[in-house]
Amino acid sequence: MTSFLKYKLSVIVIILVSVNVSCQTTRHGTDTKIKKEKSKKKKVKLSKIDLSYWKVTIPEGTGKGGAISVEPPEILNYATNKTLKPYMYNDSTKGALTFYAYPTSATTANTKYSRSELREQMVPGDDNTNWTFKQGGSLKAKLAVDEVSRDENGKYHKIIILQIHGRLTNEQRDLIGQKDNNAPPVLKIYWQNGKVRVKTKKLKYAGANSIGILHEEAWTDDEGFNFEEEVGFRKFQIEVKVSDGKMVVSLNKTEFAVYDDFNMKRWGIFENYFKAGNYFQSRDEGSFAKVSFYELEVNH
Results as ranks from 00 to 15, higher is better:
residue 2 T to Q: 06
residue 4 F to S: 08
residue 11 V to E: 05
residue 14 I to E: 04
residue 15 I to F: 14
residue 16 L to M: 11
residue 17 V to L: 15
residue 17 V to E: 10
residue 20 N to I: 15
residue 22 S to W: 15
residue 22 S to I: 15
residue 23 C to D: 06
residue 24 Q to W: 12
residue 24 Q to Y: 11
residue 24 Q to S: 14
residue 25 T to N: 09
residue 25 T to L: 14
residue 26 T to W: 14
residue 28 H to Q: 12
residue 29 G to Q: 13
residue 30 T to Q: 09
residue 35 K to T: 10
residue 39 S to M: 11
residue 43 K to W: 01
residue 45 K to G: 02
residue 46 L to D: 06
residue 49 I to M: 03
residue 50 D to W: 06
residue 51 L to W: 02
residue 52 S to D: 08
residue 52 S to H: 08
residue 52 S to A: 02
residue 52 S to E: 10
residue 55 K to P: 02
residue 56 V to W: 11
residue 56 V to P: 13
residue 57 T to R: 12
residue 59 P to G: 06
residue 64 K to N: 13
residue 64 K to G: 05
residue 66 G to H: 11
residue 68 I to K: 11
residue 68 I to E: 03
residue 69 S to P: 00
residue 71 E to L: 11
residue 75 I to M: 06
residue 78 Y to P: 03
residue 81 N to I: 07
residue 84 L to T: 07
residue 84 L to N: 10
residue 85 K to C: 02
residue 86 P to I: 01
residue 86 P to S: 02
residue 87 Y to N: 02
residue 90 N to I: 05
residue 93 T to L: 15
residue 97 L to I: 04
residue 106 A to G: 05
residue 108 T to I: 14
residue 110 N to Q: 13
residue 113 Y to K: 10
residue 114 S to W: 10
residue 114 S to V: 00
residue 117 E to D: 06
residue 118 L to E: 01
residue 120 E to K: 04
residue 121 Q to G: 04
residue 121 Q to W: 07
residue 126 D to W: 09
residue 127 D to E: 15
residue 130 N to G: 03
residue 131 W to S: 00
residue 132 T to S: 14
residue 140 K to M: 10
residue 142 K to E: 09
residue 145 V to Y: 08
residue 145 V to T: 02
residue 146 D to G: 06
residue 148 V to H: 10
residue 150 R to T: 14
residue 151 D to R: 00
residue 151 D to K: 02
residue 154 G to D: 05
residue 161 I to L: 14
residue 164 I to L: 12
residue 169 T to W: 11
residue 172 Q to I: 04
residue 178 Q to F: 05
residue 179 K to L: 09
residue 180 D to Q: 06
residue 184 P to I: 06
residue 188 K to S: 08
residue 191 W to H: 07
residue 191 W to V: 04
residue 193 N to P: 02
residue 211 I to T: 15
residue 218 A to F: 08
residue 223 E to C: 01
residue 229 E to L: 03
residue 232 G to H: 03
residue 235 K to F: 11
residue 236 F to L: 01
residue 238 I to F: 08
residue 238 I to V: 08
residue 241 K to E: 12
residue 244 D to Q: 13
residue 247 M to Q: 03
residue 249 V to S: 05
residue 250 S to G: 01
residue 252 N to H: 07
residue 253 K to A: 13
residue 255 E to F: 03
residue 260 D to Q: 12
residue 263 N to T: 02
residue 265 K to I: 03
residue 265 K to S: 09
residue 266 R to H: 13
residue 266 R to L: 13
residue 273 Y to S: 02
residue 275 K to H: 06
residue 276 A to P: 15
residue 277 G to M: 08
residue 281 Q to R: 14
residue 282 S to F: 11
residue 282 S to L: 07
residue 283 R to L: 15
residue 288 F to E: 01
residue 291 V to N: 00
residue 294 Y to A: 01
residue 294 Y to T: 04
residue 297 E to T: 08
residue 297 E to V: 00
residue 299 N to S: 13
